[in-house]
């Protein structure tokens, strides 16, 4: 990516005004796409002075600032205490430590990238995003709704709840993108998300309904995933291969969550 100037606003109002006034401006995340794109912008908006690098636990929630690195999330004891290894497992194979020290959770979420493993994992948590202009938006709504394009993501708020959650994926090479990713949680109800299909992760409706009505129907619910989701081809795997893998990962995840 190319840009003529970089600005570091001292408050959110200024940052949003620049973003709204200049359609060719862009908010910087971890700049992991710096050398992967030739797209030209007029102004890059760096939010580094707005204190968005934090993980805070309060009575009901865990709040993650948009500039928190994936490596910080991977190692954080607060997150691990409440959600086990769900989030660490979803980020620990992304390229290498050097990459994850720089990549930001805000960029990983706001980009709505199909290969994003963290989106697969966050979908099964009770999770909201806080934007400067649009305010609080449920995470699942943001992922499936492309209306929010020119706003500033400030933080991710995850509600603390008792229960189990876990993440599973299949990849052919340690630091490459996965062929498929699956997350399952059992808090108020069982949630199943399937991602890197290779399109963006999505929550299951039908399979989740089936397993919530009868916890013994693990195989039937897992097989329903193939009918419920579309699986595409890319250089890592064919859609048909993904269709074979998805029920296996979902079934294993459900068995562990329900055990």
């Amino acid at each position: 990516m190319r840009f003529e100037k970089i600005v570091k606003p001292k408050n959110f109002e200024t940052a949003l005004k620049i973003l709204k006034d200049d359609p060719d401006s862009v908010i910087l995340g971890g700049t992991t796409f710096l050398r992967l794109s030739d797209k030209k912008y007029s102004t890059a908006i760096d939010l580094a002075d707005l204190d968005l690098d934090y993980i805070i636990e309060n009575e009901d929630n865990i709040e993650i600032g948009a500039y928190t690195s994936l490596r910080t999330i991977e190692k954080d004891t607060i997150i691990n205490k409440h959600f086990g290894d769900l989030l660490p497992k979803a980020v620990e194979h992304i390229i290498g430590v050097q990459f994850r020290n720089n990549a930001k959770i805000g960029g990983a979420v706001f980009g709505r990238l199909g290969f994003s493993e963290i989106i697969t994992a966050l979908l099964v948590l009770d999770c909201e995003l806080q934007f400067e202009e649009n305010g609080i938006v449920p995470f699942a709504e943001f992922v499936s709704n492309w209306k929010i394009k020119r706003d500033i993501l400030k933080k991710i708020v995850i509600k603390k709840k008792p229960g189990k959650c876990l993440y599973k994926m299949l990849r052919t090479s340690d630091a490459d993108f996965p062929i498929l990713s699956v997350a399952v949680s059992n808090f108020d109800e069982i949630k199943i998300s399937v991602g890197t299909r290779p399109s963006i992760a999505k929550l299951s409706q039908e399979a989740s309904r089936m397993i919530n009505s009868d916890n013994s129907k693990i195989i039937e619910a897992s097989n329903l995933i193939v009918k419920e989701f579309t699986f595409g081809d890319d250089m890592r795997a064919s859609g048909k291969y993904r269709e074979k893998i998805a029920p296996v990962l979902v079934s294993r995840a459900l068995q562990e969550v329900l055990s």
Binding site: I6, L28, G30, L34, R35, F99, N101, N102
Partner: peptide
């Protein structure tokens, strides 16, 4: 291209000099 930024290994090809 790894360097340490405040002691943390970081890819300098992805890290803006301005930052």
């Amino acid at each position: 291209c790894s360097v340490l930024i405040d002691g943390k290994p970081t890819l300098s090809c992805q890290f803006l000099a301005a930052r």
